[in-house]
Amino acid sequence: MMGSVSSHTPAPSGPEPSVSDLEDAALRALAQLSGRGDPEAFQALLRISVAAGEHLGVSARSVAEAASWSAVAGAAGTSRQAAWSRWKT
C-alpha cells in the first residue's frame, strides 16, 4: 500500500533521539532492505521512497513556516524559487 503520510506520532518513551541517530537508523534499515534481494524487501523500499518524498514536503513546509523558503533552499542547496515550486503543496 502506498498511502499518504501517516499523522500518527508514537508517544515519547524517553529523550528524543538526535537527528544523527535517526539518520543512522534509517540508513541502516535501507541498507539491510536493499541487501536482501527479494521482492518483499524491494516493495518495502518502494513504499519508503514514496513516504520519504511526502515527508520531505512536510518538512520543507514546516521549515518554511518556522523560518523561510530561503532557509529551505539553503538546506536543499537550491534557489528559493525552486524550493517553493517543488514543496509548496
Rank of each mutant, 00 (worst) to 15 (best):
Met1Ala: 09
Met1Asp: 10
Met2Trp: 09
Gly3Ile: 03
Ser4Gly: 15
Ser4Tyr: 08
Val5Tyr: 06
His8Cys: 05
His8Gln: 12
Thr9Ile: 12
Pro10Cys: 06
Ala11Ile: 12
Pro12Trp: 05
Pro12Val: 05
Pro12Gln: 13
Pro12Ile: 03
Ser13Tyr: 09
Pro15Trp: 06
Glu16Gly: 10
Glu16Asp: 12
Pro17Trp: 04
Ser18Arg: 10
Ser18Asn: 11
Ser18Leu: 09
Val19Ile: 12
Asp21Pro: 01
Glu23Phe: 10
Asp24Ser: 14
Ala25Glu: 10
Ala25Tyr: 06
Ala25Trp: 06
Ala26Thr: 08
Arg28Met: 11
Arg28Cys: 09
Leu30Ala: 11
Leu30Val: 11
Leu30Asn: 04
Ala31His: 13
Gly35Arg: 08
Arg36Ser: 13
Pro39Tyr: 07
Glu40Leu: 14
Phe42His: 15
Phe42Trp: 09
Gln43Pro: 02
Gln43Asp: 15
Ala44Ile: 03
Leu46Ala: 15
Leu46Ser: 07
Ile48Phe: 09
Ala51Lys: 03
Ala51Ile: 06
Ala52Asp: 14
Gly53Val: 04
Gly53Cys: 08
Glu54Ser: 09
His55Phe: 12
His55Pro: 05
Leu56Gln: 12
Leu56Pro: 03
Ser59Gln: 12
Ala60Met: 04
Arg61Cys: 04
Ser62Pro: 03
Ser62Asn: 12
Val63Met: 07
Val63Ala: 04
Val63Glu: 01
Val63Ser: 01
Ala64Asp: 07
Ala64Arg: 01
Ala66His: 14
Ala67Ile: 07
Ala67Leu: 14
Ser68Pro: 03
Ser68Gly: 08
Val72Pro: 00
Ala73Arg: 00
Ala75Leu: 15
Ala76Val: 02
Ala76Arg: 04
Ala76Tyr: 03
Ala76Trp: 01
Gly77Ala: 05
Ser79Pro: 01
Arg80Cys: 01
Gln81Cys: 02
Gln81Trp: 03
Gln81Glu: 06
Ala82Thr: 02
Ala82Arg: 00
Ala83Phe: 00
Ser85Lys: 02
Ser85Tyr: 00
Lys88Trp: 02
Lys88Cys: 06
Lys88Asn: 11
